[in-house]
Design a protein around this nucleic acid. Structure first.
Length: 703
DNA sequence: GAGCACTGC
């Protein structure tokens, strides 16, 4: 086995770690940082006073890297070297080196805020900037001060980000460890193509005809384009003159492909055959395809982002960053020198692309993360001042506070409530945690657990309700339809139907459901049940109704619990048509997603009030996963909205004078004093509630 | 009447 570059740096690394509490390691692909750093520090005696934790953004990485390290050290996995991921803890009291997902480490710090069992914490792949890694970086900054004598923190990052991370940790040292990538020659287009699909197609065929053997990896934005590209490639390759070039195999690769299709890319090409792998971003970091020598990079990626001013997610095709472009190019140089064809001019790369991808923390709803931080009870930290590498916008934090207030996780002055503490314990979005608490009080916890689990697993019920579409109506689906109450109820019914056939995998495939997702839902449900039973004061019922079907056909209590939980995600139907208006501190015109099973009454009217799981803007704003609720349940939440004051919510445990000072400072820094004073006036809220009441009266009169 | 990239507790 070749000696990894990092081994030559062992003394230097050990020395630097000895002298500094925090060290940034810039390790390129193939440097061996993921497997070697922990072993180096183990050899140097750091495991005498505690374990070494190594975090990974992905589960598969935690498992495979720990397996590798156990093998190198000649120990049984789970003994001296182990891993911990959700649903699976393979560590023991002998464990010295522990690989875990960053989400797992966050969970651990909930019950043990100083993470005392660790003497070293290595945050690997920090340049990927997952939401969890960013929060961990903030926690580490605080932790190294608290435990300056007995904690070492190492952060691995990419070249472009290293200085920034170092600056965040008051200028800690940066060590560079070279990788073992082969050179990749880059070719740029002279201009942006009008159709990147056509341009990729042409480039791929050019390579096929002219270049020596080696697989081609083509980066596309999504499933649709990949499908088109695959069929066009197959068509054009067939037309190529026989004998003029080698054989070809075209493979799609994206996340929603069934696992058996995904693994096809891991078997090598047949002899004298070139593979074309048409992939999404999944091939950028998550999956490594061997044999790739040529990369075609469109320069685009599909990215999900959250807009805190509308509460809406959107999925947009955006330009990639320079880090991403380099990562894509690197995929061509893993086994030998490669070539990367960039379908954009070099000026675009240098002048238009961002240095790094916008971190997830600036593209997500932060309700869950803010609740998490609040539950840590860090006495010295105001949540809005919590130091992060790239702080989210003030608007985004305020949005999180408002959401948390509406679902009773924090009180009117921003303090975490008892509800909030329970909610933070559950590995769910706050809305679903709140639903579970309410369901427990209303005697329908078991059903709510199932819904929460099904929503976590994204067990998409593939358009089995395409009623009007004659083409797709081959056979009517046997799946339950939510009894008209909506998608949450349908998810519940589907799971219960699966339970009735003893969780038979074949039942899933027969009904066009992914076995993987359903199994995941089952695992989540079990985990949630265990956590709830652990934290509950009294006895809880987590199993009822799974087998003995209830007689309440209207799922009344369950819908009521959902309404309480989704108090921040309510919508009201328009008086004269089936469009909806979201209710809350901001109002949007939205529609029920066409895939919903929500039913209208005999007059063709959808329910007056619904809760929704998510707002997503795809060509138009839609509510995905909706459930019918009753006005009487909605009114108390609107009342609560009336009392909401964002200035108080921001306050936390600080006294008002101090808060004021901070705000003045913020105003000064932002140089936008108008912005900070511009908050929804109470008039606004009043008028909203007034309007809702008028509509209520109008409806009542109509009936 | 539309069609969702990728992770994770």
């Amino acid at each position: 086995m070749a000696v990894l570059p990092i081994v030559e740096y062992e003394d230097k690394i050990a020395e630097t770690v000895e002298e500094n509490p925090v060290v940034v390691i810039i390790g390129e692909t193939g440097s061996g940082k993921s497997t070697q750093l922990s072993q180096i520090l183990d050899r140097r005696g750091y495991t005498r006073s505690g374990m070494i934790a190594v975090t990974q953004p992905r589960r598969v990485a935690a498992v495979s890297v720990s397996r590798r390290v156990a093998m190198e050290l000649g120990v049984q996995l789970g003994e001296e070297v182990g891993y911990a991921i959700r649903f699976e803890d393979r560590t023991s009291n002998k464990t010295r080196i522990k690989y875990l997902t960053d989400g797992c480490l966050l969970r651990e710090s909930l019950s043990n805020p100083e993470l005392k069992q660790y003497s070293v914490i290595i945050l690997d792949e920090a340049h990927e900037r997952s939401l969890n890694t960013d929060i961990l970086l903030g926690l580490m900054k605080r932790l190294v001060k608290l435990r300056s004598s007995n904690l070492k923190v190492l952060i691995t990052s990419a070249t472009l980000d290293g200085v920034k991370v170092s600056r965040f940790f008051s200028g800690c040292p940066i060590l560079n460890v070279p990788g073992t990538l082969f050179p990749v020659e880059k070719f740029y287009s002279t201009e942006r193509p009008t159709s990147y699909l056509e341009s990729s197609l042409k480039t791929a065929l050019d390579i096929h005809v002219r270049e020596p053997p080696g697989d081609i990896l083509i980066f596309m934005t999504g499933q649709d384009d990949i499908g088109k590209m695959v069929s066009k490639l197959e068509e054009r390759i067939q037309k190529l003159e026989e004998g003029s070039c080698m054989d070809a195999l075209v493979l799609p690769l994206h996340g929603s492909l069934p696992p058996e299709m995904q693994v096809r890319v891991f078997s090598p090409a047949p002899p004298n055959c070139r593979r074309f792998i048409v992939a999404t971003n999944i091939a950028e970091t998550s999956l490594t395809v061997d044999g790739v020598v040529y990369v075609i990079d469109s320069g685009y990626v599909k990215q999900r982002q959250y807009n805190p001013s509308t509460g809406m997610y959107s999925l947009d095709v955006v330009q990639i960053s320079r880090v991403q472009a380099d990562q894509r190019a690197g995929r061509a140089g893993r086994t030998r020198p490669g070539k990367c064809y960039r379908l954009y001019p070099s000026t675009v790369y240098h002048e238009e692309f961002l240095d790094a991808t916008i971190p997830e923390i600036q593209r997500s709803s932060l309700a869950g993360s803010v609740l998490y931080l609040k539950s840590l009870d860090l006495p010295d930290i105001d949540i809005l001042e919590f130091e992060l590498l790239d702080p989210p916008s003030r608007e985004s934090l305020e949005d999180a506070l408002r959401q948390l207030y509406l679902i009773d996780a924090i009180d009117e002055s921003g303090m975490i409530t008892d509800f909030g503490r329970t909610m933070a314990e559950l590995p769910l979005e706050p809305s679903l945690s709140r639903t579970l608490i309410e369901a427990n009080e209303l005697g329908c916890l078991s059903q709510a657990l199932t819904i929460a689990a099904m929503l976590s697993s994204e067990a998409t019920l593939r358009s089995n309700q395409s009623k009007g579409n004659a083409k797709k109506r081959k056979q009517p689906s046997e799946l339950p339809d939510g009894s008209g109450w909506g998608d949450h109820i349908q998810l519940l019914q589907v799971y219960e139907a699966w339970d009735l056939v003893d969780y038979d995998p074949k039942w899933c495939t027969d009904n066009d459901l992914q076995v993987r997702s359903m199994m995941f839902a089952k695992d989540v449900r079990k985990q949630l049940s265990q956590i709830i039973q652990k934290i509950a004061k009294g006895p809880v019922d987590v199993e009822s109704s799974l087998r003995q079907r209830r007689s309440d056909k209207d799922y009344r209590n369950l819908r009521r619990a959902l309404c309480r939980g989704y108090g921040n995600q309510l919508a009201e139907r328009m008086l004269h048509h089936n469009g909806y208006k979201t209710l809350g501190y901001r109002s949007q015109l939205v529609q029920v997603h066409p895939s919903s099973v929500l039913e209208s009454d005999e007059y063709g009217h959808l329910p007056d009030y619904v809760v929704y799981h998510e707002l997503i803007n795809v060509s138009r704003p839609f509510m995905r996963n909706v459930c019918s609720v009753e006005m009487a349940w909605v009114m108390p939440i609107l009342k609560k909205l009336e009392k909401m004051d964002i200035n108080k919510l921001r306050g936390g445990s600080y006294d008002p004078n101090e808060t004021k000072l901070e705000e003045n400072e913020a105003n000064h820094n932002n140089k936008q004093p108008d912005e900070t004073t511009k908050r929804p006036s109470s008039d606004d809220v009043d008028s909203k509630i007034q309007a809702a009441r008028e509509r209520y009266l109008a409806r009542k009169a109509k009936k």
